[in-house]
Write a protein that binds this DNA or RNA. Structure first.
Lengths: 251, 251
DNA sequence: CGACGTATTGACTCGGCTCAAAACCTGTGG
DNA sequence: CCACAGGTTTTGAGCCGAGTCAATACGTCG
């Protein structure tokens, strides 16, 4: 199909490098990584397409090259919980390997998105042949696990405004003290809201509160943080991580 | 010390069997497991003792033989988030292996508790020598990860009463339809409340609501579920797992 | 310019938290 | 056996944060 053709032209730009840089391949021989990369093929998803559904057999895992993908779960009543939001350089779907071979959540592109898709089987084989792959995956999964633990904590302990503050803090680069910084929110506010476990109305109001209480400046999707200290004071008092908590980024 | 002596007498009852049955050792050669088990020694913690603190170097991991241990994180303001509560047959602390060698949360005995403690180093060595160990840990961590994902979902999507209902459902054995069942809450209500991310007052009121809305009978710590269907209808509508969701127990 | 999707605002409700007091256990010592 | 002390759980009253529903504003793309 046309999308696939275009995909093959533009999608795999830098794919190999991204693949090599994946945390889960840290410590794995480049030749092994290359072989795995060769099992992949590019694919395009247009905005709003379902990539896979919860409980589908996990035949592929995906590397995002451009665009955004949300990982979510849906209840009988139609509410959804957004588990992750991934962009360029992140993989998803690989954990179906361990979950009885099915995806434990659904994936949808929230923007026109190009990915590389890899058969899970090849990864499964590499996993049993090469101990470094297993170690890499263990480390990666452990990081992920720690991130989720932190999220549970913030859901129970932090207010909506504080969660947004943390989200913003993690988007910031390392900064010299006293420096102000302007950033662009990475995706729709309504999606950020869902990612942080709140409604968009609440997000909107909580952001307004951050303006007052932590001196944030907001215009549209661009946010200026005049004082990093002030923001982290506001957020991190209700968190068990001392400030530069950004070792694991929110997706 | 006396505690250690008593520990050596009574604590390691069945320890070897429990150790062999750990999910993370599924698929590992019995001889390997035995060798790892031999690195351990018993230890007693009295109620309320700190076993380790967040950010301590992760020198040991622990197998619970009796009693209860809570894993938690604390904020600057003194609030705490309870991450896990473990009893006989569960291990904890092993993931410090992957988290820069430090514990990512604190552990405290919430009852007089006997454990076996094992040096992390031995496990680290086994991990790099034996691929099946790595695979076992991957599977175990993946299960854990899935459980945490579900918890995030319930924190955002379910009411307090529904979360309690799910907690109870997971304590139930597989039951023939229409059977009623009485169980004993495994630990203090206030701890269950914390584990589920709510205050004990809220827990108390939410349990009262479950009595009305799902026909639960509660007397002290014993809970009778007359109709499993009724309870799961009440809880699972706000959850993306269809009912027998208990494949991963709440700790 | 108009139209559509996204974001904000307003008014209201409700669930869960806070603080404080009462009730309930459980174990201890008289 | 009773009284009492300590902890845990429950109940009550009031508050506040977040959700709901509906209306309005904003942005951007045709």
């Amino acid at each position: 199909m046309a999308a696939d053709y275009i995909g093959s032209l533009i999608a795999d730009v830098g794919s190999r490098d991204l693949f090599h840089d994946l945390p889960m391949f840290h410590g794995v021989a480049p030749s092994t990584i290359d072989k795995l990369h060769d099992t992949g093929r590019p694919h395009l998803f247009s905005k709003g397409q379902i990539i896979y559904l919860q409980d589908d057999p996990g035949e592929f895992y995906f590397l995002v090259l451009s665009g955004w993908v949300k990982i979510f779960r849906e209840t009988l009543e139609g509410d959804e919980a957004v588990i992750d939001v991934f962009n360029r350089g992140h993989i998803f779907g690989e954990n179906s390997l361990f979950e009885d071979g099915v995806y434990s959540a659904s994936a949808m592109s929230v923007d026109d998105t190009s990915v590389m898709m890899f058969p899970t089987n090849a990864l499964r084989a590499a996993l049993s042949n090469d101990g470094t792959v297993a170690m890499g995956m263990l480390n990666a999964m452990s990081d992920y696990r720690r991130g989720k633990t932190r999220e549970i904590e913030s859901l129970t302990l932090q207010s909506a405004a504080q969660r947004i503050g943390c989200f913003i803090l993690r988007l910031l680069p390392a900064l010299p003290e006293g420096e102000s910084f302007t950033l662009h929110l990475p995706y729709d506010k309504s999606l950020i809201a869902a990612r942080l476990g709140m409604k968009s109305e609440t997000f909107s109001r909580a952001l307004a509160r951050l303006k007052k209480d932590a001196n944030l400046q907001v215009r549209g999707a661009s946010v200026t943080v005049p004082s990093l200290t002030e923001l982290s004071n506001y957020c991190c008092s209700a968190c068990s991580n001392e400030f530069p908590c950004g070792d694991l980024k929110y997706g």
